[in-house]
Amino acid sequence: MRLLLIEDDAKLADYVSRGFSEAGHLCDVLDNGQDGLFQATRETYDVLIVDRMLPGLDGLSMVKAIRAAGNKTPLIFLTSIGGVDDRVEGLEAGGDDYLVKPFAFSELAARVAALARRPAFQTEQTVLKVHDLELDLIRHRVTRAGQQIDLQPKEFILLEVLMRAEGRVLTRTMLLERVWDYHFDPQTSVVETHISRLRSKIDKPFDVALLHTVRSTGYSLDAPR
């Protein structure tokens, strides 16, 4: 893949670009929005990786300009601005994905690979669906069988992570990292507690269970077969 990383934190940019280079990809790096806009609209890339807080031209404005120019290259925001409204704003501006710092490089690499696999004509997926369970990323709404389900912010993020990994088992450590940004084990039952609360809302009122515990391994969300 050929990637364009627009990030003004030199250490982070070096870390990310080296990671992709070691994986066999080409990664160009720029540190400001003006140059990023020029490069993204002049050259061809498989995926754009963009920070929101950029000098010269902020990332949000840059992405809007890229989309206004007709450029549909898959794009992921990589930023420390992680509120729900901020994520919605980024997606509405033209982002295809949104990853909040601090992050694991393995997750960034997986998300970039997923974006690169999308057909060129495919529009941004803003609604995740597993069986009769739907999660709307823009409206921040969850429904199952047409019934609205009220989730707390961390429950919403946890469900999003599980739905994006549909059919795959996510370990407790992976969930701690992706949902709570813990890169260590805090020795608490936060994962188990939130899984229990989530299950009580999306599964127990319905006939078919979607959220499964895989003993001694982790959790998965999958449609019935």
Results as ranks from 00 to 15, higher is better:
G56S: 04
G146S: 03
E22M: 15
H131P: 12
L162Q: 04
Q34V: 12
G167K: 08
M174N: 12
L159C: 02
G146W: 07
V50C: 13
L91K: 01
V112Y: 12
F184T: 10
E166M: 03
R42Q: 15
A120H: 12
R144Q: 00
F121H: 15
L159I: 00
G95R: 01
H183V: 04
M1C: 06
R225H: 12
L175K: 09
H140K: 10
E192T: 14
L221V: 00
A23R: 14
A93S: 13
S17L: 07
L4V: 09
M163I: 06
Y182W: 10
K201S: 06
A69H: 14
D222S: 15
V50S: 11
D35W: 04
G94R: 09
S189Q: 13
H140F: 12
H140Y: 14
S189C: 11
D207A: 14
M163T: 00
Y45S: 08
V190S: 07
A109P: 04
V169P: 03
M163Q: 08
P186W: 11
D9N: 13
R168T: 13
A165Y: 06
A65G: 06
S61Q: 08
A23M: 09
G218C: 07
D136K: 04
T213Y: 04
D203H: 05
I138F: 07
N32S: 15
D14Q: 07
T41D: 07
D8T: 04
V142T: 05
R117L: 05
Q148W: 00
H212L: 05
V47F: 11
D132L: 11
L210Q: 01
